[in-house]
């Protein structure tokens, strides 16, 4: 619509405005997930029934999804590298691969939830499963949001425009990956 304000181009804090803002987004996301997972840990440590419910989660599916997200993070950071080298089309390809990783993650998650619901473990069947679906669901929403933004970024990066955005969405994607790195042991390993 209009050109960026001069304000956006200044960097008195020693960092480009976009990157600074992404870090603030991440800071505010840390406390959202922190509140939810903190509550989960309190329940998990004090309720015996959580242990028996947790035995029903499938660690191998969780591990597979961890691998998928780690791989997509690698693509994201390779996209950042390509963008730094000024290679927009390559950066866009890497972002598409990242989106593909996110899609695989969501498909596996869908299968996993389908199987769980099929076995009678629904959102309301026990507090453990309430947390299981809420935490993973909130995380999945972040995956979906990241994928959508990434498609837009890839579309401009393909034309060698706004290449700094590749890094910004990458930082966000790595954060989503880090959240899953903690969700994996919390929900799948510790039984």
């Amino acid at each position: 619509m209009s050109a960026r304000p001069i304000a956006t181009t200044r960097s008195a804090a020693g960092m480009p405005t976009g990157r600074l803002a992404v870090w603030w987004v991440i800071a505010s996301e840390i406390v959202i997930f922190g509140g939810l997972l903190g509550s989960y840990v309190m329940f998990r440590l004090s309720h015996d029934s959580f242990a028996s419910d947790a035995a029903n989660t499938n660690m191998y599916i969780g591990a597979f999804n961890t691998w998928v997200l780690l791989t997509s993070s690698l693509f994201a950071v390779l996209g950042h590298k390509a963008a730094e080298e000024g290679n927009g089309p390559k950066a866009a390809r890497m972002l598409w691969l990242t989106v593909g990783g996110g899609a695989v993650f969501l498909l596996v998650k869908t299968y996993e939830w389908y199987e769980k619901i099929h076995h009678g473990h629904t959102l309301s069947s026990s507090t453990f499963f309430s947390f299981y679906y809420t935490a993973a669901g909130l995380h999945a929403l972040h995956v979906i949001a990241g994928m959508i933004i990434m498609l837009f970024v890839a579309n401009t990066a393909r034309k060698n425009l706004e290449l700094h955005r590749v890094e910004l969405i990458g930082i966000y994607w790595h954060f989503v990956d880090v959240v899953w790195i903690f969700l994996f042991p919390l929900l799948y390993i510790a039984k």
């Binding site: 993070s73 950071v77 990458g170 790595h174 880090v178 790195i181 903690f182 994996f184």
Partner: peptide, 13 residues
């Protein structure tokens, strides 16, 4: 998990 998160934050982010 902590080590992995630190590595991602340091090397990727």
């Amino acid at each position: 998990a902590v080590v992995k998160a630190y590595m991602v934050a340091k090397n990727f982010m």
